[in-house]
Design a protein around this nucleic acid. Structure first.
Length: 578
DNA sequence: GCCGTTTTCGGCCCGACTGTTTTCAGTCG
C-alpha cells in the first residue's frame, strides 16, 4: 500500500527543495528534510492524524505539524503552493542533475531563464554559461553528463514507487462491481528495477463500470484514452497506467501477452508458429482453423507450447526458453526462503528506529536470525566509535533470543580507495559479521576500483560486499570495475555479494548477478533498512535476485543459522591458515 | 524550524572533494 506518510514526506521534501532554491536558511531547510525523513520512517500510517498527534513524531514541531495537518485535511499546503507559484517545476528538476544543487540551479534560472534540464542543455550548447561566474568548462561537461544520465532514466520510475501504486489500483478495481479478476502485468510483474508504465489486466462482465471506476480513481489526473477494452490514464506522479479488460476465459493468454517482455513473446509466438498454432492476447489458436485451444491460464498456454510455466522475472529472452525446453529452469529463491536480514541500521548511526524497535518489528516477520550493521567510524558523519559499537553489542546480546530470534552484531564498514576498511582485524574479529561497502570516491580508474574491491573481498574479516556497484538508479552510474576479477576474488575468498533491496539501489543489478553466479559466488539478500518500514523492501531484492536466476541455495541468508555461521567463520579460518 | 537545555536562546551529523578560485562556495555522503 502506498502510505500517506510517503506522500507527506515527498511534499515536505519538495518544500525543503523550494526553500533551498529560493535561498532559504540552511537550518530551516534541514529541519524540513529531517521531518520528511521522520514521517517517512514513522511506523504507523499518519492518515487522519491531527496536529497534536503529528507533534509526537520526532523532528515535527508546531509549525510543521500544522502544515502537515493542513495537507492531510485539504490535500495541499498554502505555503508550498506559494513557492510553487514562484519556482517553475523544471527548476526543481534541475537539482536532480548530479552535481547541480539548489544554489546554482537558481543562478541558472535567474540569470539565463533556464527552467528545465532540456533548456539547460540548450543553454550549454549555445555557450550561454561561458560568462557566468562559477561555471567553467569542466562544469559544463559534468552538467551535460548529468543531463544524459537523467535522460537515460527517462520518464521511468523506480520499482519501489510503481509497485505500491499498482497494488492500490488493483485493490480498488477488485472491489468494483462485476470485476472478476485483476492484476498487474508488464515490466512491473517482471520486477524490472525501473518501470515506464503500469499495465493492469482485468476481467469483468461489466467493463464499462470498471473503466469508469478506473478514471475516477483519486490517483488519476488525466485520461489519455477511454474505451471499453483499453483505458489509459496519467497519475499525479506523471506515470501512465493502462487498464485492459479481456473476456474471463482469456485471462491466462492475456496475462502472458501483457507481461512480456516483447522479446520473450516473440519467442513464444515463434514456437507457436512451428507447431501450427497462433498465440495472441486472446488465446492459443489452431493456425488453420482459428479454433481456440487454450487461454484460461498461463500454465495451459505454456504447456501447449511444450514448455513449463516460466516465472515472469525470467521472461527476457536471455536463455529462459532454452532452459525451459531443456527442463533446466532454476528453482528461484522466494521471500519464503529468507531466514533473516544481514544488513540493517539503527539510530546509533543513520537509522530512524532504535535497536529495540527494529528487533520488535523483525520478530513479526518469522525470521530465524537478524543482523544489525550500523556504520563504522570512517563514514565520518555518523560519528561512530568503538565504544558505541561495543555498547550496542552488549545490548544486542541482552536482546538475543527474545522472540525466538538470533541476533547477530555486525557492522557496515567503509571501503576506502585502497580497499582498506575502518578497523584493524583484531577489532573486526569481535563482530559476528562484517559488511563492507563503497560510499565515496566513485570515479576512480577502472583498475584501481577493481583492486579496491578485490582487496576488500580478500580481507579476512569482510563477509559481504554491500551494494557492490554503488549505483543510485537515475542518479549515479555503477562504479567501473573489472567485475569478473571481483567475482573471482569473492568466490575464492568466501565473500558474499550483496543484493541490496533498497529500491533506489537494487545492487547488484540482475545482469551482474548472473555473471557473478557463473563464478560460483554466494549472495546476501539484504534490505539495508534504515527504518521499520524498509524491512518490506526485501521483496524488491527478491525480484532482482530472481531476475539474476538465483536459487535459495545461492543466497546465504536462506540458510539455517549453523550453515550461515559456518560460512561467516570460514574466512577467519582461511586467514588463520595463511 | 526543532530541540533541549545551562529553560527561552543557541546549536543544529562532519569531513572531503570538485572546480573554481586565489581563499572558498557548492555539493555530496
Amino acid at each position: 500500500m502506498a502510505r500517506t506518510n510517503d506522500d507527506v514526506a515527498a511534499v515536505l521534501e519538495e518544500y525543503a527543495d523550494l526553500l533551498a532554491i529560493t535561498g532559504g536558511e540552511d537550518f530551516k531547510i534541514r529541519v524540513y528534510q529531517k521531518a520528511a525523513r521522520s514521517i517517512g520512517a514513522h511506523a504507523a500510517d499518519i492518515d487522519g492524524y491531527d496536529a497534536g498527534e503529528l507533534r509526537q513524531i520526532p523532528n515535527v514541531g508546531e509549525k510543521i505539524a500544522h502544515k502537515v495537518a493542513e495537507y492531510l485535511r485539504s490535500g495541499t499546503m498554502a505555503q508550498l503552493e506559494e513557492l510553487r507559484g514562484r519556482i517553475p517545476a523544471g527548476v526543481r528538476a534541475l537539482t536532480r542533475i548530479a552535481a547541480l544543487g539548489p544554489k546554482r540551479a537558481m543562478v541558472l534560472h535567474e540569470s539565463l531563464g533556464v527552467d528545465s534540464p532540456e533548456s539547460l542543455e540548450s543553454a550549454i550548447h549555445a555557450g550561454a554559461l561561458r560568462d557566468l561566474p562559477g561555471f567553467g568548462a569542466k562544469t559544463e561537461e559534468n552538467l551535460l553528463h548529468g543531463i544524459a544520465l537523467l535522460r537515460d532514466a527517462g520518464e521511468r520510475v523506480q520499482l519501489g514507487v510503481a509497485m505500491p501504486l499498482a497494488e492500490d489500483i488493483v485493490t480498488a478495481l477488485k472491489s468494483v462491481q462485476g470485476c472478476r479478476r485483476c492484476g498487474y502485468a508488464g515490466s512491473l510483474r517482471r520486477m524490472k528495477d525501473t518501470i515506464g508504465d503500469i499495465d493492469i489486466l482485468a476481467t469483468s462482465n461489466r467493463p464499462k463500470v470498471l473503466m469508469s471506476a478506473f478514471i475516477d480513481l483519486p490517483q488519476v489526473t488525466e485520461v489519455i484514452v477511454h474505451g471499453d477494452k483499453k483505458t489509459s490514464v496519467r497519475t499525479s506522479q506523471g506515470l501512465q497506467v493502462d487498464l485492459r479488460v479481456v473476456p474471463p476465459d482469456a485471462w491466462g493468454a492475456a496475462m502472458q501477452y501483457f507481461t512480456g517482455s516483447k522479446a520473450h513473446n516473440i519467442r513464444t509466438r515463434e514456437i507457436a508458429g512451428h507447431r501450427k498454432l497462433k498465440l495472441s492476447e486472446y488465446g492459443l489458436f489452431d493456425a488453420d482453423t482459428e479454433e481456440l485451444i487454450v487461454s484460461k491460464t498461463e500454465e495451459e498456454v505454456y504447456r501447449r507450447l511444450g514448455l513449463p510455466w516460466i516465472p515472469p522475472t525470467l521472461r527476457e529472452d536471455i536463455g529462459e526458453i532454452e532452459a525451459a525446453l531443456a527442463g533446466e529452469l532454476p528453482e528461484l529463491v522466494t521471500e519464503d526462503d529468507v531466514c533473516g536480514d544481514l544488513h540493517t541500521h539503527t539510530t546509533l548511526t543513520d537509522g530512524h528506529a532504535s535497536l529495540e524497535e527494529m528487533v520488535e518489528a523483525v520478530a513479526g516477520r518469522g525470521y530465524a536470525y537478524y543482523a544489525v550493521t550500523d556504520h563504522g567510524p570512517k563514514l565520518y558523519m555518523q560519528q561512530m566509535t568503538l565504544e558505541k559499537a561495543i555498547a550496542q553489542r552488549e545490548r544486542v546480546r541482552e536482546l538475543d533470543g527474545t522472540s525466538g530470534l538470533r541476533l547477530l552484531h555486525g557492522v557496515e564498514l567503509n571501503i576506502d580507495p585502497d580497499g582498506d576498511v575502518d578497523w584493524p582485524p583484531d577489532v573486526l574479529a569481535g563482530f559476528d559479521l562484517c559488511v563492507a561497502s563503497v560510499h565515496s570516491f566513485f570515479d576512480l580508474p577502472k583498475d584501481r576500483t577493481t583492486r579496491r574491491l578485490v582487496r576488500a573481498a580478500e580481507h579476512p574479516c569482510v563477509n559481504i560486499i554491500g551494494h557492490p556497484s554503488a549505483r543510485l538508479i537515475g542518479r549515479r552510474p555503477p562504479i567501473d570495475a573489472d567485475w569478473d576479477q571481483v567475482f573471482k576474488a569473492c568466490a575464492r575468498s568466501g565473500t558474499a555479494l550483496e543484493i541490496n533491496a533498497f529500491p533506489e539501489r537494487l545492487d547488484l543489478a540482475a545482469e551482474l548477478i548472473r555473471r557473478a553466479k557463473r563464478h560460483g559466488v554466494n549472495f546476501a539478500l539484504d534490505s539495508d533498512s534504515h527504518a521499520v518500514g524498509h524491512l518490506d523492501n526485501l521483496r524488491y531484492g527478491i525480484g532482482t535476485a530472481q531476475r539474476g536466476w538465483l536459487t535459495a541455495d545461492d543466497v546465504i541468508n536462506t540458510w539455517p543459522l549453523d550453515r550461515l555461521t559456518a560460512f561467516l567463520g570460514k574466512k577467519e579460518v582461511l586467514a588463520g591458515a595463511r
